[in-house]
């Protein structure tokens, strides 16, 4: 589904990603872990098409298409979803207007008519249950005044509505208490299927107790320095990142 080949990304003149190779197949869950500043969020943003990241080298092939040719909105319409580490508050744009515009933009791209109002409300009700989101939240402006947990739930709620093929969840677990973590992970698990794939970006192993990954990668200094199965996450939990850092720095 996703093929990243020797991807190098700059922010201004600074090279953040220094040659990433990653292959994700349908049905898989990949976890990307790594210490702070290793480039995890840069990778997520580059996949979603944030324009201040400058791709200097390499390719991102998604479903046979060169992703870098697509605008952020077209990537979303092709089925890529980014769950934000810091979801943006947008005062004055109501959740309902936002979600309806989003869904209908996707439908239009697929040549479908806009969703009738009744069906839209029904869909919202249905998906709200997945993340146990408060009805009241959808009557407010996008993320405005939401608590940290509510913002993250809202991301998963949007994911449930949009049914992406490839979901990239950037530090979705940060700032969540144990209940919110359970709800968010349940949401993600319910949405797993053999047709879609998930990339989970996280600093801690904690989330991976709930969402079990097929592959775990360690990102350090802009490169994937280690890949393994879920036991790698356990190892990192026990020993921290120090041993990997030492290993990599010794070889450098």
């Amino acid at each position: 589904m996703l093929e990243i080949k020797d991807l190098k990304v700059n922010i201004e003149d600074k090279e953040i990603l220094k040659g990433i190779n990653l292959s994700v197949k349908a049905g898989e869950v990949h976890a990307i872990m790594g210490p702070n500043g290793s480039g995890k969020s840069t990778l997520a943003s580059a996949l979603a098409g944030r324009d201040y990241f400058n791709i200097t080298h390499g390719k991102i092939i998604y479903e046979g298409k060169d992703l870098t040719e697509l605008t952020p909105e077209d990537r979303a319409r092709e089925g890529i979803f980014l769950g934000f580490q810091y979801p943006v508050e947008i005062p004055g744009v109501s959740m309902v207007n936002f979600l309806r515009t989003s869904i209908n933009s996707m439908r239009k791209y697929r040549g479908q008519d806009p969703l009738p109002a009744g069906d839209f409300l029904k869909l919202m009700r249905e998906k709200k249950k997945i993340v146990e989101i408060d009805s009241d939240l959808t009557n407010r402006s996008v993320n405005e005044g939401f608590s940290g947990g509510e913002k993250k739930k809202n991301e998963i709620f949007q994911m449930a509505l949009l049914e992406p093929k490839l979901a990239i969840l950037d530090e979705t677990d940060s700032g969540l208490d144990i209940d919110a973590l359970r709800i968010v992970s349940n949401g993600v698990n319910k949405l797993r299927s053999p047709e879609n794939a998930t990339i989970i970006i996280t600093h801690y192993q904690r989330l991976l107790d709930y969402i079990v990954p097929d592959v775990v990668h360690v990102l350090y200094k802009g490169r994937i320095v280690k890949s393994g199965d879920k036991s790698l996450a356990k190892e990192l939990e026990e020993h921290g990142y120090e041993w990997i850092k030492q290993e990599v720095d010794a070889n450098a």
Binding site: D51, P72, R75, A76, F98, S102
Partner: peptide, 9 residues
Amino acid sequence: FYLQSRGIS
């Protein structure tokens, strides 16, 4: 960007 990432032009 947030809006765009949800498919809105």
